[in-house]
């Protein structure tokens, strides 16, 4: 096992095993199995810096290290207002 991160929401902490080369999306997919929420409804924030994690970047690129604390937010409701250009 290379590393783990602590994903927190409300009163729950999920310990997720991962690798620095994995992307945020990989983590969201692991979370999906635990919380039954599709990855596009999840938003992860690195608590130490308040940075929102980018789906396509790796953990190493975003300075998410072993034992890091990551906050989990979930999109509310079924509908999402599309972004109009």
């Amino acid at each position: 096992m290379a590393m783990y991160i602590r994903v927190k929401r409300h009163k729950t902490t999920y310990f997720i095993q991962c690798d620095p080369t994995e992307t945020t999306l990989d983590i969201k997919q692991k979370l999906q199995a635990l919380i039954d929420q599709p990855s596009n409804n999840q938003q992860l924030t690195l608590v130490a810096t308040n940075d929102i994690l980018d789906d396509l970047k790796t953990l190493a690129e975003q300075k998410v290290e072993n034992d890091a604390v990551v906050g989990l937010a979930l999109r509310k409701g079924l509908f999402c207002i599309p972004f109009v250009n």
Partner: peptide
């Protein structure tokens, strides 16, 4: 809940989901 994880609950009711 996945099969290979367990939930540990503290005195104050906080939950920690860890691998078995």
């Amino acid at each position: 809940m996945k099969e290979d994880t367990v939930k540990l609950i503290s005195a104050e009711g906080f939950e920690f989901v860890v691998d078995k």
